[in-house]
């Protein structure tokens, strides 16, 4: 109840923080998709590259998020972006790579070789098989990876407040330093709601994009 009152009283600020938060996550995920999906597709052609890329992306996930934000600061301050939105976005992009690349790679790889064979045998080029057969068939698994990346980014994005990127994490950190429980709860609750809503919206988009022929039952 107190949380509700807090949010009503501070609605303008909450919206501002939510907007900042969403914006950082949106840019990060957009970049992550634009890089992760092509990388995931590319490594299906190259076994060795696949091993290396998946290994590196795996290592990235093991770095504690707060440490990764910290590491960003000295590296990016070399080009004048030590704190703020830029290191936050870079960190989130790196985190998002693993679920997106791994799902893209696995989904494309898992397309039944007989179906690829049928496509080639009928005279599709390798690229036509990739984009008319493999990618559409892999789409729902790729989407699952993107959804994981988005939800994760919204969560980890809260920590970005620590390096001055703003967002709903601001309430959490402020609440901790002021031992103001309601503020912490307000921050956590809004982050969770944002994650649920965005995941749901992505689910709707997925339903539109993935062929009915691939749906279960």
């Amino acid at each position: 109840m107190e949380v509700y009152q807090f949010l009503v009283q501070n609605w303008a600020e909450t919206l501002k923080l939510a907007w900042q938060h969403a914006w950082v996550v949106a840019i990060a995920v957009a970049i992550a998709i634009a890089t992760g999906v092509p990388i995931g597709i590319w490594i299906t052609f190259n076994r060795k590259a696949a091993d290396i890329v998946l290994y590196l992306a795996g290592i990235m996930m093991t770095i504690p998020s707060i440490a990764l934000f910290g590491i960003m600061i000295p590296i990016l301050s070399m080009i004048g972006y030590g704190v703020g939105v830029v290191p936050a976005i870079v960190a989130l992009v790196l985190y998002s790579q693993l679920p997106i690349i791994r799902n893209t790679y696995a989904a494309i790889k898992n397309v039944d070789p007989n179906i690829i064979d049928a496509g080639l045998g009928m005279g599709m080029t390798r690229m036509q098989v990739l984009f008319k057969v493999q990618v559409p068939m892999a789409l729902s698994v790729i989407f699952a990876g993107v959804r994981v990346a988005v939800v994760m980014s919204i969560g980890i994005g809260a920590i970005a407040a620590y390096i001055g990127a703003g967002g709903l994490g601001h309430y959490i950190f402020m609440g901790i330093s002021q031992t103001y429980d309601t503020m912490i709860q307000a921050g956590a609750l809004t982050v969770a709601i944002m994650a649920i809503v965005v995941d749901y919206v992505f689910g709707l988009i997925e339903n539109r994009l993935v062929s009915k022929g691939l749906r279960e039952g």
Partner: peptide
């Protein structure tokens, strides 16, 4: 590719594209 498009090719049932309708499958070539 021109050669393959000029030759009919059928494999076991699993060769149908699951994400395409019957119409689109037949219309491939």
């Amino acid at each position: 590719t021109a050669l393959r498009r000029s030759i009919g090719y059928a494999i076991q049932q699993i060769g149908l594209f699951p994400h395409m309708t019957v119409y689109d499958n037949i219309a491939t070539v």
